[in-house]
Measured scan of single mutants.
Amino acid sequence: MATDAALRRLLRLHRTEIAVAVDSAFPLLHALADHDVVPEDKFQETLHLKEKEGCPQAFHALLSWLLTQDSTAILDFWRVLFKDYNLERYGRLQPILDSFPKDVDLSQPRKGRKPPAVPKALVPPPRLPTKRKASEEARAAAPAALTPRGTASPGSQLKAKPPKKPESSAEQQRLPLGNGIQTMSASVQRAVAMSSGDVPGARGAVEGILIQQVFESGGSKKCIQVGGEFYTPSKFEDSGSGKNKARSSSGPKPLVRAKGAQGAAPGGGEARLGQQGSVPAPLALPSDPQLHQKNEDECAVCRDGGELICCDGCPRAFHLACLSPPLREIPSGTWRCSSCLQATVQEVQPRAEEPRPQEPPVETPLPPGLRSAGEEVRGPPGEPLAGMDTTLVYKHLPAPPSAAPLPGLDSSALHPLLCVGPEGQQNLAPGARCGVCGDGTDVLRCTHCAAAFHWRCHFPAGTSRPGTGLRCRSCSGDVTPAPVEGVLAPSPARLAPGPAKDDTASHEPALH
């Protein structure tokens, strides 16, 4: 009773807030009518008042009428009001819900409408889902798969039609296919003929059939049928067999079959498995989609049935006599038709004709302190090069084509190399640097090759510096006499390219 009084008091307290929050009759008014909170006449009256005075006034009048009803109607109103779709449509209802007392429970059932309790003993237990329907569909599909699609060729003596089998029958139906081979029951999904010589313990000319048996419980189990008994694959494991010639990621696949039913060829011909030897223990289905393919039931050349050999690369099948050149017997292992072999060759040939990528240039590290003349020119003028003790990398590039010797140069053309002071002394051009340390401070000019250098860098042994005729380390061993002091540049003949010694390969005349 306390809860009923509290709900009535809360409705009177929030009546105006609810009326202002509800700006549309749908969905709240319609939901109240659906849950029998508002009768039909009051529903029509509220809609009429909404058209006349507006939605807030109409709902305020409806809530005032609701306060005169019993506690069950008020409880049902609060339940409908706080439904998710009403809270989404009328956003101003959320503060009312947040301020609702926590001790007021809106989930209690309506009085007088409590459903009768059902004894637990009368409640049926839930049924577990079964796979009976899938099993029945598999039974119905198996006879259809064994139905012949056409008439065999005159040369083929193997013609068999499976008798119709009602689904209610649980007995196995067997077809006489000759040579002791028996087909599987209607619940078998796949059958492959297997030679009895590969099964340990088999006697006589009995041949087993590799099947997948579907049981009534819905589970499946792969086994071997020899005669009327089934054997699990673990009985046929043979770890010492060295003649297993397995197909790549293979499961067994029928390579020879008669049109209309699988079996042995007439005249004692023995149908073979995809792999010879003992049956392997793992009978998992292969991951290669080509091995799941269903080959055609007629020859791809003459479009006739009979004894066919199936290609492992495509769905086509052929007569042995229709092949070019014809085959006398079934080859062992994987067999592919000429079209598949030709496609494989065409895929391999473009790969062989692809040009080989060019090898990157060989990189040879230079000892610290040495650099090529090109690196000396590329440096920024007026700045010493940083990191001189790091190992430089010199790339061996292809030799350029031989060019004509340089033409003779006048001494005026070499004027930018040297600057003559007032006393006739050779001065260095701006930006000249030593080729060893890279520093341009207090550098000297070689009178023979006009290269800038430090005496301490080229002659670290402490050799005394002569007063005139300074030469760098590369030119100090040259027998050519030094030019007379005061000459602007060496003779043009000295600039012609010539053979250089091994220790002077990195010091070429550089223009500054």
Results as ranks from 00 to 15, higher is better:
residue 75 L to N: 10
residue 171 E to N: 11
residue 159 K to H: 12
residue 102 K to M: 05
residue 206 V to K: 06
residue 240 G to I: 05
residue 116 P to S: 12
residue 166 P to L: 09
residue 221 K to M: 10
residue 18 I to W: 01
residue 41 D to I: 00
residue 87 L to V: 08
residue 189 Q to V: 01
residue 64 S to A: 01
residue 257 R to L: 08
residue 258 A to Q: 05
residue 80 V to A: 01
residue 202 A to N: 15
residue 126 P to F: 03
residue 126 P to Q: 01
residue 203 R to S: 07
residue 152 A to L: 12
residue 157 Q to Y: 14
residue 94 Q to F: 02
residue 179 N to W: 00
residue 181 I to R: 06
residue 208 G to F: 01
residue 159 K to M: 07
residue 256 V to A: 12
residue 144 A to Y: 15
residue 225 Q to M: 01
residue 63 L to W: 04
residue 62 L to F: 00
residue 178 G to V: 13
residue 170 A to M: 02
residue 171 E to R: 13
residue 145 A to S: 14
residue 216 E to S: 14
residue 185 S to N: 08
residue 19 A to Q: 00
residue 149 R to G: 06
residue 96 I to P: 01
residue 243 K to V: 08
residue 194 M to T: 03
residue 112 G to E: 13
residue 167 E to L: 15
residue 83 K to Q: 05
residue 86 N to G: 01
residue 120 K to F: 10
residue 19 A to R: 03
residue 171 E to T: 15
residue 64 S to H: 05
residue 130 T to D: 03
residue 66 L to Q: 03
residue 242 G to T: 00
residue 241 S to C: 11
residue 138 A to W: 15
residue 6 A to D: 10
residue 161 K to W: 03
residue 133 K to M: 01
residue 73 A to D: 01
residue 269 G to W: 15
residue 261 A to S: 05
residue 100 F to W: 15
residue 171 E to K: 06
residue 249 S to N: 05
residue 186 A to C: 13
residue 30 H to L: 02
residue 44 Q to R: 07
residue 174 R to G: 05
residue 254 P to D: 05
residue 163 P to V: 04
residue 148 P to F: 15
residue 97 L to G: 01
residue 116 P to K: 07
residue 176 P to M: 15
residue 92 R to F: 03
residue 112 G to C: 09
residue 117 A to K: 04
residue 63 L to R: 01
residue 154 P to L: 14
residue 250 S to Q: 00
residue 232 T to G: 09
residue 154 P to C: 06
residue 112 G to S: 08
residue 124 P to A: 05
residue 13 L to G: 01
residue 75 L to W: 15
residue 66 L to K: 01
residue 273 L to A: 09
residue 210 L to M: 05
residue 149 R to S: 13
residue 86 N to W: 00
residue 180 G to W: 01
residue 12 R to K: 15
residue 251 G to A: 08
residue 118 V to M: 14
residue 122 L to D: 14
residue 116 P to F: 12
residue 78 W to H: 03
residue 225 Q to F: 01
residue 273 L to H: 03
residue 229 E to D: 08
residue 163 P to W: 15
residue 137 E to C: 05
residue 201 G to E: 07
residue 229 E to V: 02
residue 241 S to V: 08
residue 100 F to D: 01
residue 268 G to D: 08
residue 3 T to R: 12
residue 234 S to E: 05
residue 206 V to C: 05
residue 82 F to A: 00
residue 196 S to P: 07
residue 15 R to A: 01
residue 270 E to D: 14
residue 180 G to M: 04
residue 216 E to Q: 09
residue 132 R to K: 02
residue 78 W to D: 02
residue 175 L to A: 05
residue 40 E to R: 00
residue 118 V to F: 10
residue 22 V to W: 01
residue 223 C to D: 04
residue 44 Q to M: 00
residue 115 P to L: 13
residue 145 A to L: 13
residue 45 E to I: 00
residue 10 L to Q: 00
residue 71 S to V: 03
residue 58 A to Y: 01
residue 200 P to V: 07
residue 182 Q to A: 15
residue 227 G to I: 01
residue 144 A to L: 12
residue 239 S to M: 15
residue 176 P to G: 07
residue 146 L to K: 09
residue 170 A to V: 07
residue 251 G to N: 01
residue 167 E to H: 01
residue 11 L to C: 01
residue 175 L to Q: 11
residue 37 V to R: 02
residue 248 S to Y: 11
residue 211 I to K: 02
residue 165 K to H: 12
residue 220 S to W: 00
residue 53 E to Q: 09
residue 66 L to R: 01
residue 24 S to D: 05
residue 207 E to H: 07
residue 133 K to W: 01
residue 78 W to E: 05
residue 13 L to I: 06
residue 117 A to Q: 14
residue 90 Y to G: 00
residue 8 R to N: 00
residue 112 G to V: 08
residue 78 W to T: 06
residue 215 F to K: 01
residue 111 K to T: 09
